[in-house]
């Protein structure tokens, strides 16, 4: 497990649809809550001029959770919104990815989530592309 890997799956799960994650993950393995799901706010920052000094834009709701599996793997999750079961599932997934079921989870849960996310992004891009202006110039006056 590399850090890049873990960042990727945690981000993917945080952005995923709660219903879809619940469906793909199915029955949850035995786990204990190292930190029960808690909803709070994250202050979102921007930069003046897009690239300059940071400023506080406003908050977003976030739910975090930490779990421990029977094998001792500890999973963490920070997910957008107030859905506590979603945060718990995300933390369980993070823990599962550190155990011997990692490959199966990658194939059966992460891969479909990633496909869904990239399809959504592609659809958005394609709709945006259809609204791209094609300029043409009218020839004016006499030559």
């Amino acid at each position: 497990m590399t850090m890049t890997d873990r960042r990727e799956w945690m981000g993917l799960v945080a952005r995923s649809d709660p219903g879809m994650l619940a469906h793909l993950l199915g029955e949850l393995p035995p786990h204990s809550l190292a930190r029960a799901p808690e909803t709070g706010a994250v202050m979102v920052r921007g930069r003046a001029g897009g690239t300059g000094a940071p400023f506080n834009l406003g908050e977003m709701t976030v739910t975090r959770c930490s779990v421990t599996l029977a094998g001792g793997e500890v999973g963490h999750a920070y997910v957008q919104g107030r859905d506590k079961p979603h945060a718990t599932r995300a933390a369980i997934l993070d823990a599962l990815m550190q155990g011997d079921r990692a490959e199966a989870i990658r194939r059966d849960v992460l891969a479909p989530l990633a496909r869904h996310a990239s399809q959504r992004a592609a659809t958005r891009r394609a709709k945006a592309a259809a609204t791209k202006v094609e300029f043409f110039t009218m020839v004016r006056g006499e030559d």
Binding site: G40, A41, M43, V44, G50, L57, E59
Partner: peptide, 14 residues
Amino acid sequence: TLPRLAASNPVNTA
């Protein structure tokens, strides 16, 4: 009523 859990890294609008 919400506890402040963190501040984000500045969003990358590029």
